[in-house]
Amino acid sequence: MLVLDTADLPAADRIEAFRAVAVGESGSCSVEEEHPEAGVRKRLEVWNFGPLTLFSTQGSGMRIWRTPRHARLDSMNTVSVITQSRGTGAFAWNGHQQHVGPDSLALAHKTAGYEYAWSGDGLSVAFMVDTERLGLPEHLVRAAVPLLRHSPVAPLLLRHIRSLHRNADRLSADPGAEALASATLELTRALIVSVAADERTRRSVAEETLLTRVLAYIRAHLSDPGLTPRTIAAAHNISVRTLYRQCEQGGLSLEKWIIRRRLEGTRRDLATPEHAHRTIEAVARSWGFTNPAYFSRRFHQTYGATPRRWRLLHQRPAAFAHPDEP
């Protein structure tokens, strides 16, 4: 949901407007624009997924920082995971400094203070949640801050955040938004303990979050036709039997779940104008379907229409669709 677009405001009001919105949405902070004399461009979008808030901030270079003093000015005690989809971010906390590019992320604990900045045109996507929702001691959260690059969970969480952002309008309004928030928090817990906890805690949280991590891994590899129970199990250092037991305990059939997610992806692409130039077979192949006849049959069974008819009905006004078209 769009909260602020400075293009709609007089130039003289843009800096203060962005500061006010930043404080109102995420709590007390200080904001400094890189080149205020050259003009401020900011577009801020915010979506709520139950207890989790997703932010998208894009525009001209800036620096935002929070100190323990800022934390004392409000009651928010939050943890944020920050990513940079365009440009390169700079994160600093307690002597730790790191660059945040498209393939990395940063972990920030508000009461501990931190600084985040980028130069030139940038796009940052982050989510924020109350610290207590993680169910982890604060010292563990802070210990993980400089160690994230060593976590095998980081790529999964990064892809998950990007997917949430790409479909945020639809997903935040979906009845499953709370479940998506839970999955995000489970991945965040796994991220933190994978680099900062003792062996006993790591094993415990790894077991608790195994199914969440498996499903996140599958979502990230749906386009791979070589995705099989054996490769999924191997990626998580478990047996195929354990994989199936986890899925059964989670109330899902592994093969059916994968096929359904792939079908949802093809259905979405076939109805989207930017994919109109691609053949149906190419769309199906990009979601892991290598047998066109099998794909067409499963699509028709699931949605009551052939892929071709679905595309015809959704890529042009319905008034022009003849009811007897195949």
Rank of each mutant, 00 (worst) to 15 (best):
L157F: 01
R166C: 12
S119Q: 12
H160L: 10
K110N: 14
A144R: 00
T131W: 03
L164Q: 13
A168K: 12
H139C: 01
A154K: 06
W118T: 04
P146F: 00
R162H: 10
A144I: 01
G122V: 03
A168F: 15
L147I: 02
L157D: 06
E132H: 08
E115M: 06
L164I: 10
L140K: 04
M128A: 09
D121A: 06
L164N: 11
G120I: 07
W118P: 12
H165W: 10
L158T: 09
I161W: 09
E138Y: 03
D130T: 05
H165I: 08
A168E: 15
E115D: 05
F127L: 07
T131Y: 02
L171W: 15
L164A: 10
T131P: 03
R142L: 08
H160C: 14
P155W: 11
H160N: 13
W118Q: 13
P155C: 10
T111Y: 05
P146M: 00
V145S: 00
L158P: 12
D130R: 10
T111R: 09
R166A: 15
E115Y: 00
H109A: 01
A154G: 08
E115N: 01
L140S: 09
R159V: 09
L156K: 10
S119A: 09
K110H: 12
G135I: 02
G113N: 08
Y114M: 01
H165G: 05
R159C: 13
R159G: 14
A168N: 15
G113K: 03
V145D: 00
H109Y: 14
P152N: 11
R170V: 13
L147N: 05
L171D: 15
A154C: 12
R162F: 06
A154V: 07
V125Q: 04
H165L: 14
V141R: 04
D169P: 12
H139V: 00
S119I: 02
L123K: 05
H165F: 08
